[in-house]
Amino acid sequence: MLENLTQTEQAILNVIKTVIDPEVEINIVDLGLIYKISHNEADKKIEVVMTLSARGCPVGDVIIQHVETVILDRWTDYSVDVELTWEPEWTPDMITDQGKNFLNM
């Protein structure tokens, strides 16, 4: 899903990599939770579409808030919108190779 990212979008993705899922203890990018990143320089807007590994995840909105915080920390003059989606439903197949290595899958 995260294909053809611009240089800035890739930089945003790298920043989001600092967000760790407190239960699994790996970053949410390698966990495959980030579906889409878009960066609009003219409107000064960053949009992230992401999911969680389970509905009702007890730390769900902390993770979302964390994503907003780390992006705003770097792109201070932007507005950041993190959208939570359940479509498509997250599955372990979405974990990156690096994530799979960490989890010994």
């Binding site: 009702g56 995840c57 007890p58 769900g60 909105d61």
Partner: peptide
């Protein structure tokens, strides 16, 4: 669209 989030509902 934040359906499914529980932290804000937590007591």
């Amino acid at each position: 669209m934040k359906a499914g989030l529980s932290t804000k509902n937590a007591p």
